[in-house]
Amino acid sequence: MDRNSVKNSIKIFLMLIPSLTILLSVYLYPFILAILISVVDSSGRLTLEHYSYVFTVYAQDVVFTIAVCALSALVSLLISISIASYIRLSLDEGFRKILNWIFRFPLFIPMVVVAQMMRTFLAPHGFLNTLLAQIGFIELQEAPNLFDWRGLLIGFVWKQTPFMALIILSGFAMVSDVHIDAARVLGAGRLYIVRRILLPMARGSIAIAFALTFASNIGTFTLPYMIIGGAKPTTMTVIMAHRVTYFGDWSIANALGVISYAVVGLFSIAYLREAVRAGVYERERV
């Protein structure tokens, strides 16, 4: 190695050292600690007892978490594809502008405020039920309590749809007008264009949007904590918090944490590989 490249390596190292120190010590170390703590018993021997405890006591909640988060991501996906298609294909600029402005609104609302909104909106005698009762849709005396999977679904979909729509829109924007115009000239309807041109050509963006949303739902603590709390069934994040704050029990909490890593793992690794390969981190996204 010549002098110059040694100097260069030292320079790079010095530039990276502050952020690497932070990430390795307060991110990666506790990340790996989660795995270690979850497989060790009180006397320090390797064990799977914490996992078997989770799967006997909390199996229902684990399944509940995965199901609600996947369903929410799926509903968000359908709505966001519709919004993105409307914006991409509408020839009416005014309509496009208004739509573009309205759908973004939830982006600017942090999750903790979304949770409070949903608490007022979905309460047994909250805004939604009163509204539905006014139209004669339900009886207010027997208004449904929505603070279960439905509240979680509504909250997730409300918050995540615009983010998904943005990613899918940037995918649709990369589909050249040439294809769309050609299909139009040949008499293709809007639905046909979406199904046969936009969706297949933007499937990368759609996959990333779904993966990120699902992973983000699985890891969300605020919304389920404020909407469902300790009621059964609840999400893994809420149980993790209860194990730590009520029982001082890090073993079960970490077993749940590792399960949540595993649940998002395949999606996340696919996303990370795609991100590294495509260099998404090096350019600003739309």
Partner: peptide, 22 residues
């Protein structure tokens, strides 16, 4: 790049739980 994208891709809560312990 992988390390710098990980906190985006995996749930952060387990990290916070163990950070509390530390």
């Amino acid at each position: 790049v992988f390390l710098f994208l990980m906190p985006q891709a995996f749930p952060l809560q387990p990290v916070y739980v163990n950070l509390l312990l530390i």
